[in-house]
Computed example of a mutant assay.
Amino acid sequence: MEEFIRNQTFAIHAVAGAGALTLGTAATYPFETIKTLIQVGSGPDKQLTAAQVFDRVRKLSGNLGLYSGFGWLALGRIFGVGARFGTYELLTAFYKDGRKDNYVYVSEALMAGIASGAIESIMSSPFELFTIRAQVTSASRVSKSSTALQKTTSVSSNSVAKLLRGYSPDVKALNHSVGLLSTLNTNNKNLTSSLKEYPWMMTGTGRAPPVYNVRAPADVISLEGWGALWRGMRSGLARDSIFGGVFFSTWQFLHRAMLDWKAVGMDPIPSSDEDVGPLHPLAVSLAAGFSGSVAAAASHSFDTAKCRSQCLVLPKYITMERKFLRWTLPGKRFERLTGIHPRDRNILFRGIWLRMARSGVASFIFVGSYFFAIDHLVSR
Rank of each mutant, 00 (worst) to 15 (best):
E128V: 09
H13P: 03
D267V: 05
I78T: 06
R350G: 02
G117V: 13
N190S: 14
D273Q: 05
A134C: 08
W353R: 00
S249D: 09
A296G: 06
P30W: 14
S154R: 06
A173F: 12
G17V: 03
R84K: 06
L164G: 02
P209M: 08
L254M: 15
L90Y: 15
N185I: 07
S369K: 00
S177T: 15
R56Q: 11
E274C: 07
A208M: 08
D101A: 12
D375T: 12
S140C: 07
R231T: 00
F371N: 06
F4L: 15
G351W: 01
R326W: 10
F334T: 06
P199R: 04
L329C: 00
A297C: 08
T33P: 03
A263M: 05
Q8H: 12
F130C: 09
V81E: 13
T92P: 04
E335S: 12
S299N: 08
R56W: 06
M258V: 02
D267N: 07
S159V: 01
I352W: 11
F371L: 09
N7W: 04
T192Y: 05
I352A: 03
W230R: 06
A16Y: 02
F243D: 02
R6T: 10
A134H: 13
G80R: 04
I242M: 12
S363L: 06
E335C: 07
A50G: 04
G245L: 02
T131I: 01
L348H: 05
L279Q: 14
F31G: 00
M356I: 09
R239P: 00
G236R: 01
S293K: 01
D101M: 07
F85I: 10
P268I: 01
A93S: 15
R215W: 05
G179K: 09
L90C: 07
V106S: 05
M356A: 08
K151H: 10
M1Q: 03
Q52A: 12
L66I: 01
F334M: 07
F243A: 06
R239I: 04
A26V: 13
R345F: 10
S193A: 11
V294R: 05
A297W: 15
S285Y: 13
M266F: 02
E120Q: 11
S271K: 15
Q252Y: 04
S249V: 07
F302P: 03
V367C: 13
A173Q: 12
A112N: 04
P330F: 08
A296T: 03
R333D: 12
D97C: 14
R380P: 00
R6L: 14
S285L: 15
H300C: 08
T153E: 10
Q252I: 02
K35R: 11
P330G: 06
L314G: 04
W226Y: 09
E2N: 04
F10W: 11
Q135W: 01
G204F: 08
A112Y: 01
A27M: 13
I221L: 14
V15G: 06
E197M: 05
Q8I: 05
W327H: 11
L64K: 11
L377M: 13
Y67N: 03
A26W: 15
N102H: 05
Y370V: 00
L21I: 10
D267C: 02
A148K: 13
V246L: 12
K162G: 08
L354F: 11
W200N: 05
Y317S: 01
K189A: 12
Q150K: 10
F324D: 15
S359R: 10
